Computed example of a mutant assay.
Amino acid sequence: MVSIQVRDACVDFPIFDAKSRSMKKAVLAKVGGKIGTDARVPIIEALNAITLDLRDGDRVALVGHNGAGKSTLLRLLAGIYEPTRGTADIHGKIAPVFDLAVGMDPEISGLENILIRGMFLGMSRKQMLDRVDDIVEFSDLGNYLNLPLRTYSTGMRVRLALGVVTSIDPEILILDEGLGAVDAEFMAKARGRLVDLVKRSGMLVFASHSDELLFELCDTAIWMDGGRMKMHGSLREVLTAYKGRDPFEYMSAETLERLGEST
């Protein structure tokens, strides 16, 4: 049974060579939390007292400002970080997607990277070979797929990576949005595949600043602030508390209609 159970989990990062406040601030901006002051070695308290139960079928959004601890929590839930204190028990096959470029080699072709990226995400070589034609059609990169990845633009790399990511069958999908480089037309094409990917996954935890995309993929949310869970509830309620107004008030009528919602 797919599940994630976290109890009073904390994640701390010691900074052994912090010689200035500017360095501490730079690190803090990347991992969230706060800087501990009661130790000889500065400690970044990236997550503090996280308690959470997730089950098969959960579709959870992570919201909060940059540095609030969203990415650190994703890595804890993916099993990449172990809690400094507390526990995190994870059951299920995890597909962590934090950086679309991770697992791709710039010196080999796009076609070869399809296989490597897929296996990096837990698929077998045979499974990826069965998906190659679909990924090729989706990415629409033509003959570029026979060229080294280093010859691709950033947008082309994102298109290829999205094709691979949205072809897998994860039990637990941990997703950190990195879709900014893709053009609007292709993003519209990719949304349908993202929705299908989420439907195939047993569980989704998704950090994003796009309210529209969150409403398409999630139904509950966690508001992270200073490395702590400030609120956990329905997506609309959490976004309303986080942003200070109902998100449906600033979404277009077209978007609300597509989401099947109304004000």
Rank of each mutant, 00 (worst) to 15 (best):
I116V: 15
G69N: 02
S20K: 11
G163F: 06
F120V: 15
L160P: 11
P106C: 06
R85K: 12
Y242Q: 09
D58G: 05
K126G: 14
V11C: 12
L149T: 14
F138D: 13
Y152N: 07
D246V: 11
V136T: 10
I222A: 02
A9T: 12
G67N: 02
G142A: 03
V63I: 11
L77K: 04
L204T: 03
G233H: 05
D211C: 10
E254Q: 12
L111N: 05
T151Y: 13
I108M: 07
G86P: 01
L259E: 06
G233C: 02
S252V: 07
D211P: 10
L74G: 04
I44N: 13
R21W: 13
G103D: 05
I135N: 05
A190Q: 07
A46F: 09
E212P: 04
T51F: 08
A49Q: 13
K19L: 06
L76I: 04
G163N: 08
A190W: 06
H65N: 07
G226L: 05
F215H: 14
L147A: 13
R245Q: 14
R55G: 12
P148A: 03
L204A: 08
S3F: 01
Y242W: 15
G122M: 06
S139C: 14
S208Y: 11
L179R: 02
A9P: 10
G178T: 15
P247V: 15
L73S: 06
A39M: 07
L74Y: 00
R117A: 14
F98W: 02
L111D: 00
T37Y: 03
S3P: 00
Y81I: 00
D12W: 14
M203G: 02
S22G: 02
Y144K: 12
V102L: 13
G244P: 12
D8C: 05
G233N: 08
E107S: 10
M224Q: 08
G86D: 07
I35G: 03
C218I: 07
S20R: 05
Q5F: 07
H232M: 04
L73Y: 07
K34Y: 06
A253V: 09
S201H: 01
V164S: 13
K199T: 04
